[in-house]
Amino acid sequence: MSILINLFWVAVAVAVAMGAGWLFRAAAIALTKGATARMLRTAPVTAGFGMLVILIYVVVAIFAPLIAPFQEREVVGAQFMVWDSVHKLGTDNLGRDMLTRLIYAARNTVGIAFATTALAFVAGSVLGLLAATVGGWLDQVLSRIVDILMAIPALVFALLLLTIFGTSVLKMVLVIATIDATRVFRLARSVAQDIVVMDYIEAAKLRGEGLWRLITREILPNAMAPLVAEFGLRFCFVFLMISALSFLGLGVQPPTADWGSMVRENASLITFGDITPLLPAGAIALLTVAVNFVVDWMLHRASGLKE
């Protein structure tokens, strides 16, 4: 019976989410004009919902100190207090306000994941485009290195590197960025390889354009659509990986508020039928779902334009 009631609430949540997505898309179309509005009209409701969620996360992350009722590391009550009017979501294992920690974690977790993705992306796509454009031995060397690094499962490799270098946020960012850069490299190289054989690239070369201009002005604009979609997907992978490492106690270290470690710290509550530890995990899930919905739409658009 309780499962049926749960299912009912899930259905209600989905309906509300789709409604919000539809409203957000309608509002976005009304507020913008020209090409942006035309593009937004092609967005399905799920993508509207995704964009709305991402916007909320960004706002919460930027204005965290204004929204949060308490300080990030402030002990404000007893351990594991229940939900009441002062502590809307209760307190955690050290008596810190759960809602405050959730809000600050949006800043920390998403910020770290975004920085890591950006790093992986810049390194991977620059090397990938370079390898495809220059070709020859540079391409061979880089591709073989990437092949070997990709033959080791990502999480296992990350754990190995963290054992050797020790655990800290900076080291984790560098380790994950390195691992994910190999995946970005693969995609950037294969996309660029289809482009460099085109006649207009030949023409640009004959005109005497330099390597940098060739990559940024001729190749990059045509490789942009798949790369942008890849950025979204990569962000999801990095975000999930960082959360998993933090959950295992090897990523973001306390007392910094972080969704992965918050699940770990409060997990014992779940066996008593308290859903509080599911909230940070749900926050992670909701953001990845939202990003995936938007990426799905962009991939669809990118493939649609080719037809």
């Binding site: 999801c236 959950f247 899930a285 990003v291 995936n292």
Partner: peptide, 15 residues
Amino acid sequence: ISFPEFFVAYILIFV
């Protein structure tokens, strides 16, 4: 696909 493994695991424990 978007759910972290521990989220799925704890939901299953909860349910």
